[in-house]
Design a protein around this nucleic acid. Structure first.
Lengths: 234, 234
DNA sequence: CACCAATCTCTTGCATGCAAGGAACGTTAG
DNA sequence: CTAACGTTCCTTGCATGCAAGAGATTGGTG
């Protein structure tokens, strides 16, 4: 769930390039808007331009980079508007996942969610935001997986990649009181799922996503939508 | 909306190949499971293997073809299960679009939807299924566009491409009484949207999608999920 | 001093060559 | 006749070469 969005069936070198580049982008190792040179990366990976080029092509389809013909390839910089849209989609998909999971009844994912929340409670109790952030990611992933719809899962992964979510979670959890609130909301959602109340589960889950989005935006100072000409990391 | 799913910013030849191949696949001009040779297509388009290859890469990410390394590229054959999943997503996205559109209030798309339904009524009245099928597609597209969320639109387009929807619509409309029923449901949805009743609009829209899916599956004889080794069109 | 223009370099787009890996076929042994 | 094996052909994966376009830099001019 964490990596591999599309369907990279390729066995070798190209897959590595794609995975590595994707990781760098969503982790924020390369800055949004930064140019990505085929040649430089090819040298770095010790391969020719071709696989790098094909990797770019795929990452473009995934929405992680933008290829401007004859100009260069750049890490995409989601505009404020796009971030809103992405969260709208996140809300939609996660809400649906909660409902679908509730409909499925007793499946292994339920237990794993329970276990996840137990750990999360402990992490919140000792104010371990680092670990809690991981657990939050796992919770949402489990929810999606539990919906048992591969298409939903694929679209969701693409979405999260575009949001570079791992970076964002921490920001939102730095809001005072947010971890505790978040943890409570997770509990409520799981409870409703176990009760097979799909409608409520979806509703609460959507509200949860909105709350997390608010917490996130409150923690973001400058949007920085401008396509920075910053030549960092060339 | 009909073509261009990902973000093919490329200016020239490669974009043509992608568009053409996509059109052929969703129109059913090439059979599902059929092999696609880089060399053959390169010859046909009068270009080298490279752009064809890159086009394949993108189409793979879109879920239209499957590249088996060192073996070949094949038109994807959605399994019965995948079709179910795709419809689940369709229901989800179109339902959400209806709700979002209702929330937006009076926008140009509303009028275009009205006009579309007027034409649709006429088409149904004279039993012009061909034209009605087109109008149905337009109705759904307008709905999505009206939601004013580019991410939703992008995901929706990908979805429809994977379903090769244009082919399917006609099948479902061949069910007796389905066009009339479909038209009525469209009217109801639009009515609810105009009344700004987002919740109901979403609910009815989702029911409509389910109904259309039922009509479709009733008209499909054999699933044929097997990855046919049929070497047609080599 | 400001502005315009020509050039010059760096970028990607495409063509092509070579090699590695499968799959299918024909062959041969049991 | 069947089954296992070896070979051949066909497929894509990757490397590289060349050309065209865009952008930045620099020189010239008003």
């Amino acid at each position: 769930m964490t990596e591999e969005a599309g369907g990279s069936t390729t066995t070798s070198i190209q897959a590595k390039v794609i995975a590595e580049m994707r990781a760098r982008i969503i982790s924020g190792e390369v800055d949004p808007g930064a140019p990505l040179s085929e040649l430089v990366l090819a040298d770095e990976f010790g391969v020719s331009r071709t696989p790098v080029r094909e990797a770019f092509k795929q990452l473009q389809t995934e929405g992680l980079v933008e290829i401007r013909p004859r100009v260069g390839t750049f890490v995409t910089t989601p505009s404020r508007r796009e971030i809103t849209e992405l969260f709208e989609m996140k809300e939609l998909l996660e809400g649906a996942a909660a409902r679908l999971l509730a409909q499925r009844g007793r499946v292994p994912e339920i237990d794993r969610l329970r276990h996840n929340l137990a750990e999360a409670d402990a992490a919140v109790a000792r104010d371990d935001r680092e670990h809690y952030a991981e657990l939050v990611g796992e919770f949402h992933d489990l929810l999606i997986t539990g919906a048992d719809n591969s298409k939903l899962e694929a679209h969701y992964t693409t979405l999260m990649n575009q949001l570079a979510y791992p970076r964002l979670v921490k920001t939102s959890l730095d809001q005072p009181g947010r971890p505790l609130q978040s943890d409570r909301e997770h509990h409520l959602v799981l409870e409703l799922i176990i009760q097979k109340d799909g409608d409520s589960a979806e509703q609460v889950m959507r509200e949860h996503v909105r709350a997390s989005r608010r917490a996130l935006l409150a923690g973001l100072p400058a949007p920085g939508p401008g396509p920075s000409t910053d030549p960092a990391r060339t």
